[in-house]
Structures are given as structure tokens and as C-alpha cells.
Nucleic acid binder design. Structure first.
Lengths: 135, 135
DNA sequence: TTGTACTGTAATATTTTTTATTACAGATAA
DNA sequence: TTATCTGTAATAAAAAATATTACAGTACAA
């Protein structure tokens, strides 16, 4: 149960719907029933990728750093860095087994391909597109 | 850290490499350093989808139910039913917020699209293909 | 210049999920 | 009838995600 992508997308949606305004982590957290600190953590990632800007102090808050047509959901996905879609083995396989010895490499390669497919799909959708679905 | 797909793929690889033999959960678990009960749990899912067969009793074990050319990694992915690639919000958003009210629907739709992209990619690779990569 | 309302961040606790372990009933072959 | 396997449940342990608390730093405004 990992809601990081959902938090990031929710905030970007709010920012897109209220351009020019600075939204606080408290306000945003209230809209999605989540802890404000968690919002600030995700915002740090989005800012590190140049998707949003933040302002400290009274009257501080978050705003889009780019026009919403320039932000794709792939950017969001890469910013929040979810765990791999195919999962990840906890233990290393037995190196004495011919299969165990090699399977890690092949599974890694496969995981890369799947991540690429996800990014490709998400790169076709901008925040602008996503928000346009709303009434 | 979710290794269910890895376990399933590892077992199918071993079964493919040793056709005709029945492999026990203990043997397989040893090849991937994982608990045998966990292997049996994944095998239950694969069997429910008709990918493998199992035999109880002494000399029991697991075998492929189909030729490896007929089993795609998409079949495996669907059989093990991983959590959604984009994650999932734990809490429901605030229904009094215009965005919170609707975003669930749009995120669900997006999740479906991404899962479809993953399945499409994985459906191009059979277990036979995967195993052929090994030395 | 002092109070207020934010961000930024760390530390810790709680909750949830995943994996491991233990146990045992039932099946099947030697 | 004994040994070795699957099938499954129940429980424990480990890992990950989220929530909470706390507080330093920043910026605005009265």
C-alpha cells in the first residue's frame, strides 16, 4: 500500500486547478486525508525534479514550476520513484544453482523493460490532460 | 519488497529446464533461498491459472501444465496478482473537495491503463524465451 | 521587533504488508 | 506402515509505509 504517486498527482492537480495561488501542505493534506509531513516529503521529490516550486515562511506554499502541459505523469512517476512494478526478491538466489546464478541478471533486465513500458505509457499523459478529465 | 513474481518465474524456469521431472517445493526453495511454504503458495496461484500441475504424496512435486512456448510472462503476472504498479492510496480523499471527490475514479482508470501496458509488454515474452537467455 | 504561519527535516511510533516458521492433515509410493 | 511429498492454517518475525511529534529556519505583517 504505497500512495506516493497518488499524493503527488493529487497535489499537482490542485496546483493546476488553482494557478497563481500558493497551496500549503496542510490544505493539500486535508483534501486527501493524509499527513502534512507526508505531503512535504513528496513535494521535496517533485521540487528536486523541477516540477514545482516552494516558498517558505508565512504565506508560503507550493506552486507549479512549469506549465501543466509540460508536466507528464511519467515525470511524476520518475520523481516519486516507486518500488519496481514486478517487485523485488528479498533474498539472493543460490549461486550454486545454474539457474539461481543467472536469474538475477535476467530479471533485472526484464524489470527495466517493464519500467520503460510504464514510463512510455505515462509520458503520453500530461497533468493538463489529467486535470481536463475533471468536471 | 515483494518477490512473488520472482518466485513464480524462478520455479517456471526450473521446470522448463528439467522437463518431465517433478520438482519439490523444498528443492525449488533451496535454489532461491526462500521458504518452501511461500513456494507452495505461489504454486497454488499458478495451478489455479492452469500454468502448472502438482502431484501430492511421495515422489510428488510440480511440473508444467503447458509447453513453455505457450506460457507468457503476462500469464505469470496475472496469476500472482501483484499490487498495482502505481501504488494505491490508503485513505479516501475528502469528498467535500471538488478534486478529492473525483480523483479516485481518474486514478483508477489510469491504473488500469498502466496495468494494460505492463501486460502488453509481458505478453510478448514466453517462459521459453526467458529461459533461452540462460547459458 | 515580535508574533504568526508557513516549509524543511529528523526522530519515533503505529499500522500494514510481506516473509518465515511451525504444525499437521491428507496423499502416494516404496 | 513408513517416508516424503502437497495443501493449508496459524502464528511470529521482519520490512515498509504512514502517522505523529517536535523544532529550527524563513518570511510576512501588525
Amino acid at each position: 500500500m504505497n500512495g506516493q504517486f497518488q499524493i503527488a498527482t493529487h497535489v499537482l492537480t490542485l496546483l493546476c486547478k488553482q494557478p497563481g495561488e500558493l497551496l500549503s501542505s496542510d490544505y493539500v493534506a486535508g483534501s486527501m486525508n493524509v499527513n502534512p509531513v507526508l505531503v512535504r516529503k513528496e513535494m521535496r521529490k517533485l521540487r528536486a525534479c523541477g516540477l514545482i516550486e516552494s516558498k517558505e515562511g508565512k504565506t508560503g506554499g507550493y506552486s507549479l514550476a512549469l506549465p501543466p502541459q509540460k508536466i507528464t505523469l511519467a515525470d511524476v512517476y520518475k520523481a516519486v520513484k516507486l518500488p519496481p512494478a514486478l517487485g523485488q526478491a528479498k533474498n539472493k538466489p543460490n549461486p550454486d544453482c545454474p539457474v539461481g546464478k543467472q536469474i538475477g541478471t535476467h530479471l533485472d533486465h526484464l524489470a527495466d523493460d517493464v519500467e520503460a513500458a510504464i514510463v512510455k505509457k505515462l509520458s503520453t499523459i500530461t497533468i493538463f490532460d489529467f486535470v481536463n478529465q475533471f468536471d
